[in-house]
Amino acid sequence: MRFAFSEEQRLFQEALAGMLAEQCPPEAVAEAWNGDSGRIPGLWAKLAEMGVVGLSVPEAHGGLGLDQLDWVLLLQEAGRAALPEPLLETSAVAAPLLSELGGELANEWLPRIAAGEAVVALGLDPAPWVADAHEADLFLLQAGDEIHALSPQEVRATAQPSVDGARRLFRVEWEPSERTRAAAGEGGRELLALTLDRAALGAAAQLVGLARAMLDRSVDYAKKREQFGQAIGAFQAVKHQLSDALLQIEFARPLVAHAAYTLVHDWYTRSRDVSTAKARASDAALQCAKTALQCHGAIGYSFEYPLHLWMKRSWSLAAAHGDAAWHRSRLAKLLLD
């Protein structure tokens, strides 16, 4: 029994955190809201160079061949920076799915993903939306128990603007066919279940990072902002809210690592553990968003102050890949029935 990340995993986390602090400051995220792509120009190539984009692409295809456990701390950092790049969908979810689908699809797309040259959009239940369809080179879409691979020319995408301006969502219409089918039947069902768990877990990891970023920013603010002649962080009413926010984060964070472990080792508790992690990480981020806003007061409510960037990303990811209620409902079936 050893519940701790390795030194290597920690060092990779630190390296990414340092890089994002430089390359993805709040001003750059705010800028991404206004651009056509919703992304930060040039950043994807830098992430690919670091190995982050191809993290779970097998080494034979030019990636690092690492797994979900190696993703946890990196996705937390992506959340902390509110990174506006398709790291979750393309790198953490589509890449392992393509490996499992194998064949021509894997041979064609995995090297391009690792090189930072391809973005993959995912259409998976229960999410009705497809993120980043405007940038995607490949679509992996669910129809019942089947997975289909389509090119951008084979889908019609209608923008469904999100509350988070850097998160571009679409309703995608398409026709499944024999030619586009990549998996079906029992195999398809199993892959889809695993893929949903990976997506929910990735969102949960980002939510933990988002929550922590909002808490840290609020603590800094509460130490500096003075009212009635003292820092507002000295008032118990403020202290207790911030302590509760930390409590929520600290009891969600290990659940994300735990679920990543049981996913990687294919324990029978995998889906239960992922749902526990996603439900509690969503709750934690939503609570931290409210607490952060309340502790900031009016400045936090202004659009030019960046707090809303993390709040909106939190609201988006809390709703994505099954919100807390969806995952608790799945847990209820697993635990109670």
Partner: peptide
């Protein structure tokens, strides 16, 4: 039903936190 699930996740979160 949801409250029972939430209570179980409380206990599970405590168990996993303790492992760490």
């Amino acid at each position: 039903r949801e409250r029972v699930v939430q209570a179980w996740t409380d206990a599970e979160a405590y168990r996993v936190y303790t492992l760490e």
